[in-house]
Amino acid sequence: MHIEIDQDRCCAAGQCVLAADDIFDQRDEDGVVVLLDGIPDDAEALGRAQEAAALCPAGAIAVHD
C-alpha cells in the first residue's frame, strides 16, 4: 500500500490534514498538500489515508494497494 499526491491538483482545502495529520501536512506559503508518510504501516493509518482521499475536494490524493 502506498499513497500518492498530485500537488498540481491540490486546492489547499486542508481536509487531508484534518483527517490524517500524521500522514499529510500543508506548505506554509500556499497550503498545498505535503506527504509526510507515503507508506503507512498499520490499518488505522491506512483508514485515515483513505478517508483523506475521499474528503479531498480536488481528488489530489490516491491510495494504492
Rank of each mutant, 00 (worst) to 15 (best):
D30T: 08
I5S: 12
I5G: 09
A53R: 00
I23G: 05
G47D: 08
V32W: 00
G38C: 06
D41K: 13
A53Y: 03
G31F: 02
D28S: 12
A45P: 03
G47M: 11
A49W: 09
V34L: 09
F24L: 09
V33R: 00
F24V: 10
A49V: 13
C56Q: 07
A54Y: 08
R48G: 01
L35F: 04
I3V: 12
V17M: 03
A20W: 09
P40M: 02
L46P: 02
E44Q: 02
L55E: 09
I23V: 02
D22Y: 11
E44A: 04
F24D: 06
D41A: 04
L35E: 13
I39C: 12
A52K: 10
V33A: 15
V34Y: 10
E4D: 05
G31H: 08
C16Q: 15
A52Q: 05
R9L: 12
R27I: 03
E4P: 02
D22M: 12
A19H: 06
C56E: 04
A45M: 07
A13I: 00
L36C: 06
R9Y: 06
I3R: 05
A13E: 01
I23W: 01
D21N: 15
L55H: 06
V32P: 00
I5A: 11
A54R: 04
G31T: 06
D41C: 05
A13L: 02
E4I: 03
P40K: 15
P40A: 09
A12L: 03
G31V: 00
Q26F: 00
Q26Y: 00
A52V: 14
R9G: 01
V33P: 02
D37H: 09
P40F: 12
D21W: 04
R27E: 04
L55P: 02
A45V: 02
C11M: 08
I3G: 11
L46V: 03
D37E: 09
G14M: 00
D30Y: 15
D42P: 08
R27F: 01
Q15A: 15
L18G: 15
L35C: 03
A45Q: 13
E29Q: 12
E29R: 14
D6L: 10
Q50G: 03
L35D: 13
G47Y: 05
D8P: 12
G47H: 11
A19R: 05
A43E: 02
D6A: 03
D30E: 04
L35A: 14
D21M: 03
A52M: 11
Q26I: 01
Q15N: 10
A43V: 10
L46M: 15
L55F: 05
C16H: 15
G31Q: 11
E4K: 08
V33N: 01
I39G: 09
V34C: 14
A12F: 03
A13R: 01
D41L: 15
E29D: 10
D30Q: 08
